[in-house]
């Protein structure tokens, strides 16, 4: 993705004498425009990235007040051979898969719904963005209140009036009987609530960019609406959908901790312990195993880069078609 955009927007080299003078000032402008950004990025972005890579090979603890000691691949071994970690990756995988899939389907449906404007649609479209404007910690906390079987609204809304025979979402129980996985679904529901409008908005803007003539041509060919959807709408929106999915996947891996901590704290019995929560527990909360947490984070980074590359490659392929 980066290399394609690098080549297709290059300015042809200047030729005339007047332009030569300008070319010099162009270089000044490049430097003036790019270096401030690069300098602060190198200073404040690259340092943490490399320093935590270094720390991942040490036994460093941020609160120990002693210099890091090199331990080689010890931390990585611990992460790779720990059941807990794989469990966390499995849970995260399930969480990402279901929430992103649901967000895509529902987001697409919502985008098709708001595609045609009606009076006040601008305001409604803006209002449904409110969930993503809220702080995830508070969102988690509030949904905990909403999910409570006794004084929460959720069960009453979906028709369970008697708390004793209702789902206890965050405890993974139904009518007192264990129902493993329910808590993860509760988290997925909140994630979907928070981010479906965002994905709908992305797809919506993709839909509006589809040129009318494509559909007109399809009408002339008497194509069915399913055919139009599959052959015109979907391919045209696909790049944006992929970007949306990419953003959500990265965030689910790296940022989901505040939402989950607020709602379940990783419980019940670790059923919602996604990697972001696990890393947070290692890096803070009385443990401060900075080295081990960094190693874990780097494994997440590798996965995220792999997934990103997969997405970006597909995106580029689609562009070429």
């Amino acid at each position: 993705m980066t290399s394609t955009s690098a080549t297709d927007t290059a300015v042809p080299p200047p030729t005339t004498g007047v332009q030569k003078h300008r070319a010099l000032s162009d270089r000044a402008i490049i430097n003036l425009f790019i270096w401030p950004t690069l300098i602060i990025l190198i200073a404040f972005n690259v340092f943490p990235l490399f320093y935590s890579l270094f720390l991942s090979f040490t036994d460093y603890s941020a609160i120990a007040g002693r210099p890091p000691v090199w331990v080689g691949f010890d931390n990585f071994n611990r992460v790779l051979f720990s059941e807990d970690m794989w469990r966390a990756f499995t849970i995260t995988g399930r969480y990402v898969l279901f929430s992103v899939a649901l967000e895509l389907v529902l987001g697409f449906a919502l985008a098709l719904l708001i595609r045609e404007q009606f009076r006040g649609s601008g305001i409604v479209t803006t209002l449904i963005l409110i969930p993503m404007m809220l702080s995830p910690v508070v969102v988690g906390l509030f949904w905990k209140l909403i999910y409570t079987p006794t004084f929460g609204y959720f069960n009453y809304l979906i028709g369970f009036r008697n708390p004793t025979v209702a789902p206890d979402w965050l405890a993974s129980r139904f009518a007192g009987q264990p129902m493993p996985g329910l808590a993860l679904w509760a988290v997925i529901i909140v994630d979907v609530w928070m981010w479906t409008p965002f994905i709908a908005l992305l797809i919506y803007s993709g839909l509006r960019a589809i040129p009318d003539y494509l559909y007109e041509a399809a009408v002339i060919d008497r194509a069915s609406s399913w055919f139009q959807f599959r052959r015109i709408t979907l391919p045209q929106v696909m790049p944006l959908m992929l970007i949306a999915v990419l953003f959500r996947t990265i965030e689910a891996f790296t940022k989901s901790f505040d939402l989950v901590m607020g709602m379940t704290g990783g419980g019940p019995g670790g059923q919602t312990e996604v990697v972001a929560v696990k890393i947070y527990q290692q890096a803070f909360l009385g443990q401060f195993q900075t080295g081990r947490a960094s190693a874990f984070a780097y494994m997440v980074l590798i996965i995220v880069i792999a997934i990103s590359n997969l997405y970006i490659r597909n995106l580029n392929k689609m562009r070429e078609d």
Binding site: K144, Y147, T148, P149, T150, G152, P163, T164, A166, D168, L170, A171, S172, R173, A183, T264, G265, G267, P268
Partner: peptide, 8 residues
């Protein structure tokens, strides 16, 4: 004997 919803 735990009231419902008190798993956390």
């Amino acid at each position: 004997c735990q009231p419902p919803g008190m798993s956390n």
